[in-house]
Design a protein around this nucleic acid. Structure first.
Lengths: 220, 220
DNA sequence: GAAATTCTTAAGCTTGCCTTAAGCCTGTCG
DNA sequence: CGACAGGCTTAAGGCAAGCTTAAGAATTTC
C-alpha cells in the first residue's frame, strides 16, 4: 500500500513516514503543492496524507485539482488546528477524512486503513481468498485457519495480490507497491519473495502468468 | 494507564498524584483550563480527573471543548461540594462520573478503574489471557493461578499489552502509556522490561513482531 | 540515612531479513 | 532439435532490529 505524504514540516513528515511505516504502509513524501501535483499525475497511490498549509499554497488546491481530473484516491487531510471551518471546506472539496494536528501516529495509520477499506468497497477488515485470509489491521495471515508467519516484504507482496483477487499483476506493479518510486530495485527481488511465499503457502497459491505477471491461484 | 489531573489546589493535586500513583496509574498534572486544553490537544490519555473550579475558568469548558472535537476520553469530575446542580450540568456536558470533595483517594482510583473498564467495553474487573490474569484493582498478576511478582514498570507494560489482547503494540505506543509527556525516554528501556517479563512469564508469553512491536503470545 | 530494589543507559552480540547475483530449469519459436 | 528468454532456485553478504548483560542512577523501604 503506497501512501503519498504532502507535508512541509520536516519533523512531522519524518514522524509520519516512520509511523505509517510501522503501520505497514510504504510512503513517499513531497513538500510542496507543485511537487504533489507533479507526482500525482505520474504515479498512482493508494492514499494521500495532505497537509493544508503548504509553502506554495493550500493543500485544498491540490485536492481540488485531483478531483477535477477524476482522481478518486482517498485523501486524509491534516488541518493545522481544530478549525472546524477548515474541515468543512476540506470535506466539501472532496477529502475523505480529516485529522487535527497534533495527532497520534497510530491513529493516522488506523484512519488510513479505514479509508482504504471504504475505498475498496469491502465491508470487513480482512481480505479472503481460497483459504487464505489477511488482516491488515493486525498484519496477520492465516491459511485454513492456521497462522502463517510472513516477513515484511512477503506480507506486502501477498497483500498486493489479495487486494486484486483474480487479477494478474505485473512485476513492476507489485514493485511499485513495495518501494517508493525513488528507490526502485533492479533485480529479481520480487521473484525471490514469491518463491518464499510459495514455500510457505504451497506452490499453487500463486500462479505465474508467463511474460505478464502473477496472480493468486485457486478456483479463480 | 495515563491519567491527566486538572486541579489548581497544590495539596489536592499532589494528594491525587500520590494516591493514583499507588493505584497503579501514571499521572500528569496541570493547573489551569488553558494548560489542560493545550495538553489534551497534544497527548492522549486514558482518563481525565477534572476539577470544576479553576483559576481561569470552569472545568466544564474544558470538557465541552473536548467533546466538541470528538475526544471521548473518560472524564471524572471533581465537584466542589455536593451540589447536585453542578453534577447534572457536568454529566450533560459529557462527563462520565463525578465525585464530591472531600473524597477518599482510594475511591477516586476505584472510580477511575470502573470508568476505564466501561470505556474498554469489558465487564469484569480483571484482564485474562492465556493463563495470565491481571487484576488492576489489586495490581496483582497470576499465571496459572500462581502469583507472579512484577515491578512497577513490568506491570505497566504487561497491563498495556493485556488491555489490547491479540493486537500488536508499537514500542512508542507502550512508552506513551508508561511515561508522561514530559519524561520521554530514549533508550531501549522497553526492550529490557520485556526481557524481564519474559524471564518471569516464560519466553513465549510475549511475541516480537519484527519492525512493528510486541503482542501477547499464545493461541491466536 | 542506609540498604535493597528497580530503572535506565549503553555496549556488544545474535538473528532474521532483504538484496544481489549466478546458475538451472522450462516453455517457445525458429 | 537447439537456442533463447523468462522464470526459478539457492546461497552469500550486508544491514538493521532486537536481545542480553552489566553497571551506575534513582527510587523505595526499613
Amino acid at each position: 500500500m503506497r501512501v503519498l505524504i504532502v507535508e512541509d514540516d520536516a519533523v512531522l513528515r519524518d514522524g509520519l513516514r516512520v509511523g505509517l511505516g510501522i503501520g505497514g504502509f510504504n510512503t513517499d513524501a513531497v513538500e510542496t503543492c507543485e511537487e504533489a501535483d507533479a507526482v500525482l499525475k505520474n504515479h498512482e497511490f493508494d492514499a494521500l496524507v495532505l497537509d493544508l498549509m503548504l509553502p506554495d499554497g493550500s493543500g485544498l488546491d491540490v485536492l481540488k485539482s485531483m478531483r477535477e481530473r477524476r482522481d478518486t484516491t482517498p485523501v486524509l487531510l491534516l488541518t493545522a488546528r481544530d478549525r472546524v471551518a477548515d474541515r468543512i471546506v476540506g470535506l466539501d472539496a472532496g477529502a475523505d477524512d480529516y485529522l487535527g494536528k497534533p495527532f497520534d501516529l497510530d491513529e493516522v495509520a488506523a484512519r488510513l486503513r479505514a479509508l482504504l477499506r471504504r475505498a475498496a468497497g469491502r465491508p470487513g477488515a480482512r481480505l479472503e481468498w481460497n483459504g487464505l485470509s489477511l488482516d491488515p489491521a493486525k498484519q496477520k495471515v492465516e491459511q485454513d485457519g492456521k497462522p502463517v508467519h510472513l516477513s515484511r516484504r512477503e506480507y506486502a507482496v501477498l497483500h498486493t495480490l489479495m487486494a486484486h483477487p483474480g487479477q494478474i499483476l505485473s512485476r513492476s506493479r507489485i514493485e511499485e507497491k513495495l518501494y517508493g518510486w525513488q528507490e526502485e530495485v533492479e533485480s529479481n527481488a520480487i521473484e525471490v519473495h514469491i518463491h518464499h511465499l510459495r514455500a510457505k503457502l504451497g506452490s499453487d497459491a500463486i500462479q505465474t502468468v508467463r511474460g505478464i505477471g502473477y496472480r493468486l491461484g485457486g478456483e479463480m
